[in-house]
């Protein structure tokens, strides 16, 4: 707007700043808590300015562990989370791409039936099917493994549906041109469909990575071995220290570390897919 009304500007800025403060304050507290030692953090009033213990806290989080997750360093938990999130995001994207490819480009019996079957699984998230899924994973001997953590979460109706919509926008002539150019189905998929869905893959990756990273209930069920803990569930375990009060400064530090990778993914990938979106032309 080109209007110049100081009062309106003031009010709108005030509201915006207030909003930012409401969102940012808890994160600030988390950060501040992570920089003090365990004693200072339990005293009232809560400190509002950062202390000097950040590196000491980092050291103990990474090398001695915290609370109930004592034998397990935060580094290992972050690594587990990363592997799980990457496997879920990658697996979901791969499976959805292939199933959408089959549904859009092949005429097989009960094609729409299969599509709706996939679609209906939207109504069956892990939480609903948790017992049977656990039984299957346990019987297959996949407890306490990356496979057990990620495979049950990989099937994705949303992503399949999204790729189906993307493929439907690809003009038929491209398929025909590729057929005349001697590209078989898989070649067409690899050389033409994949590059054309690049931006959608990036966007989905961001969403799915965060979805995988934030998984709590499922890792809690399938991991009993501390070496397989993920960071999100690990934080909860840290709170349940048996004989001591919770080490808030270390827990807050872990929380902070747990928030970093999703933020990084968003920041890095955002550039890519905004650039991709402006370039897209099918």
């Amino acid at each position: 707007m080109v209007e110049n009304r100081p009062f309106a500007t003031f009010v709108s800025h005030f509201v915006l700043i207030l909003g930012v403060a409401i969102v940012a304050f808890p994160i600030w507290i988390t950060f501040v808590a992570a920089t003090h030692d365990g004693v200072r953090i339990t005293q009232v009033p809560l400190p509002l300015l950062p202390g000097d213990q950040l590196f000491a806290n980092l050291e103990s989080a990474f090398f001695t562990g915290v609370g109930n997750a004592r034998e397990q360093s935060v580094g290992m938990m972050l690594f587990n989370s990363l592997v799980m999130a990457l496997m879920i995001a990658g697996g979901k994207i791969a499976i959805s791409l292939l199933s959408a490819f089959a549904i859009v480009y092949f005429r097989f019996p009960f094609r729409m039936g299969f599509f709706w079957m996939i679609f209906i699984t939207l109504m069956l998230p892990v939480e609903v099917r948790i017992l049977p899924t656990f039984a299957v994973v346990a019987n297959l001997g996949m407890l306490n493994s990356y496979w057990g953590l990620s495979i049950p979460l990989i099937a994705s109706a949303t992503a399949t549906f999204m790729f189906r919509q993307v493929f439907l926008t690809v003009p038929d002539e491209l398929l025909e041109a590729a057929r005349i150019d001697g590209a078989g189905p898989l070649k067409f998929f690899r050389d033409i469909l994949l590059p054309l869905s690049r931006t959608n893959i990036a966007a989905l990756f961001v969403i799915l990575f965060i979805y995988g990273w934030n998984q709590y209930l499922w890792p809690l069920l399938v991991t009993t071995d501390k070496s397989m803990y993920t960071v999100v569930m690990g934080i909860k375990q840290m709170l349940e220290a048996a004989e001591e009060s919770p080490e808030w400064h270390l827990i807050m530090l872990t929380t902070l570390l747990a928030m970093l990778p999703p933020v990084l993914v968003v920041v890095v990938m955002q550039k890519m897919f905004v650039k991709g979106l402006t370039e897209t032309e099918k």
Binding site: P171, E173, L174, E176, A177, A178, I180, D181, G182, A183, K187, D191, I192, P195, L196, R198, E281, K282
Partner: peptide, 26 residues
């Protein structure tokens, strides 16, 4: 045979060179 389509059906993500070379590479 070779076909020229109404909307050209060029592969949007390939360079002009690769568009022409694609069929030959296959």
């Amino acid at each position: 045979i070779a076909m020229v389509f109404q909307n050209y059906a060029l592969y949007p993500h390939m360079t002009v060179y690769n568009n022409m070379a694609y069929g030959l590479r296959n």
